[in-house]
């Protein structure tokens, strides 16, 4: 079943001056799945994302994408291979308009991004596609707004639209619903479900309702190591996991719908 894996890491380790943030992680992400990565704060989830997208250099271990070893590649190269990430802290271009944000992602394919003598009106031919993407996240009415003026939830939606603009094979989302109100969470959850149709998604998510609702597989990370892996019901029943999630979050795990 090895060919079913779009992404595979073996013995991934990241040390920060002696502190081991990620400790021998073997992660297998199946093609077409929505794979959730959960774990208490400081477990190493964001660090994992940084390693997978090469924003950080792994101390040890290998990363394979579609059977190709990408462990030594530069971050922009990884993005061009089809692994596109979002960030835990909102990743928009705040003083560009909403439309321009999406267009930045579309622009690279034109091959004119070094053309400093050309008018930016030459980018207008991307506007239709950009509007389509904005419509898919329900932002069509904000296209001309300066991004910094939008509420938080909408910025996250814009981030997803921008990521989608690259049509990535593998999309990495770091806490896409963090800090959102109830309605926004539902919207983003539906959106993720929708865009997962012909791609793979790996996401860090704290909201158990989202995890239980849309993920196919779940990996629990604690202190840099994989604690458990499998479908939601199986993982939630794992005593190790329950122990790691002491206190209120145990209830969350047991009854996701209650929140």
């Amino acid at each position: 079943m090895a060919e079913d894996c779009i992404l595979e890491t073996t013995g991934l380790v990241k040390e920060f001056r002696g502190f081991v943030a990620v400790n021998g992680v073997d992660l297998k992400v199946r093609r077409g799945h929505i794979h959730a990565l959960i774990g208490p704060n400081g477990a190493g989830k964001t660090t994992c994302f940084n390693l997978l997208t090469k924003f950080l250099e792994p101390t040890r271990g290998d990363i394979c994408f579609n059977g190709i070893d990408i462990t030594r590649e530069a971050p922009e190269k990884i993005a061009r291979r089809g692994i596109v990430r979002s960030f835990q802290i909102s990743a928009v271009f705040p003083h560009l308009t909403v439309l321009e944000n999406v267009r930045i992602a579309l622009q690279r394919k034109l091959g004119t991004s070094f053309h400093f003598w050309k008018s930016d009106r030459s980018l207008d031919l991307l506007n239709d596609r950009a509007m389509e993407l904005l419509t898919s996240v329900d932002l069509q009415d904000c296209a001309d707004m300066v991004t910094v003026e939008m509420p938080y939830g909408r910025k996250r939606a814009l981030e997803i639209a921008t990521t989608l603009a690259l049509d990535p094979e593998l999309m990495l989302l770091d806490e896409p619903t963090q800090g959102m109100g109830h309605e926004d969470v539902d919207r983003v959850m539906q959106l993720i479900k929708k865009v997962s149709a012909n791609r793979t998604i790996l996401m860090v998510e704290h909201n158990m309702k989202v995890v239980a609702g849309i993920s196919d597989t779940l990996t629990v990370l604690a202190r840099g190591s994989v604690l458990a892996e499998g479908p939601y019901a199986e993982v939630a029943a794992n005593p190790l996991v329950i122990e790691a999630y002491m206190g209120t979050e145990v209830d969350e795990l047991a009854s996701p719908a209650g929140h």
Partner: peptide, 23 residues
Amino acid sequence: HSPFGQILKAIRENEPRAISLGY
């Protein structure tokens, strides 16, 4: 105000994001 200028602004605004978009 060129395609190149757009990318410069993107880098000024959020460099990691520009990298993650493949630039």
